[in-house]
Amino acid sequence: MTFSLVARCARTGQLGVGAVTAMMGVGKLATYAQPGVGAVASQATMNPYLGIDGLRLVSSGLGADEALRRLIREDPGRDVRQAGFVDRHGHSAAWTGDKTPGWSGHICQKDVATQGNRLVGRETLEETLRAFREHSELDLAERLLVALEAGEATGADKKGALSGTVYVVDTEEYPLWDLRVDHADDPAKELRRLFSESLELLIPQVKALPTRADPLGEATRQALAEHDAAP
Rank of each mutant, 00 (worst) to 15 (best):
A223T: 08
A7T: 04
A41Y: 07
A230P: 03
L50D: 02
I203K: 08
N47P: 03
H106T: 00
R122K: 10
D75S: 00
C9L: 09
N117Y: 04
A33I: 13
A229C: 05
D139M: 13
Q82I: 01
A184I: 10
A67K: 08
G102F: 08
D228R: 15
K28C: 06
A225L: 15
Q115C: 12
L209R: 13
T124G: 04
T2H: 03
P204N: 08
E152Q: 12
E66W: 12
S92R: 11
Y174M: 11
V58M: 15
A153C: 03
I203A: 06
G38P: 03
F195H: 13
E190T: 09
E126M: 01
G36T: 15
V206P: 06
R221I: 08
P204S: 08
L5M: 06
L55C: 05
P231L: 13
V168M: 03
T21I: 11
A161N: 10
R118A: 10
A94C: 07
F195Y: 13
E74N: 11
A141M: 11
V26E: 05
H227F: 13
E126N: 04
L55R: 01
T100H: 01
K28W: 03
L15P: 02
G90I: 14
V80C: 10
H227L: 15
L15T: 05
A7V: 11
P231C: 07
G61H: 12
V120N: 02
A44Y: 04
G51D: 09
A94K: 04
Q43E: 07
R122N: 00
V120R: 01
G36N: 13
E200K: 15
E172N: 10
R70L: 14
S4H: 09
G84H: 05
E218N: 07
G160C: 10
S104I: 00
D87R: 07
T96A: 02
R118T: 05
E74G: 05
A113I: 11
D157P: 00
K159T: 08
A147V: 09
S92I: 13
V206S: 07
Q82L: 00
E152G: 05
G27H: 07
D214A: 06
P76Y: 01
E126G: 02
V80S: 11
G121S: 03
P187D: 07
E134N: 10
T96L: 01
E127P: 01
E134R: 14
G102R: 15
D65M: 15
G38R: 08
G16L: 15
E123K: 00
A30Y: 07
P231R: 09
A156K: 01
R8A: 07
T12Q: 14
G116F: 03
L68S: 05
A147K: 07
D157L: 02
T165V: 15
A153M: 07
A208S: 15
E190S: 10
F85K: 04
D111Q: 13
G90Y: 13
R130G: 00
S163I: 10
D170F: 10
Q43I: 01
H183M: 14
R193Y: 02
A93F: 08
L129N: 06
L29S: 08
D87P: 03
N47I: 12
T31R: 13
A141I: 12
F85Q: 02
P231I: 09
S42L: 14
R8T: 09
H135Y: 02
E126P: 00
L162Y: 05
G77F: 01
Q14R: 15
E126Y: 01
A41T: 08
E123A: 02
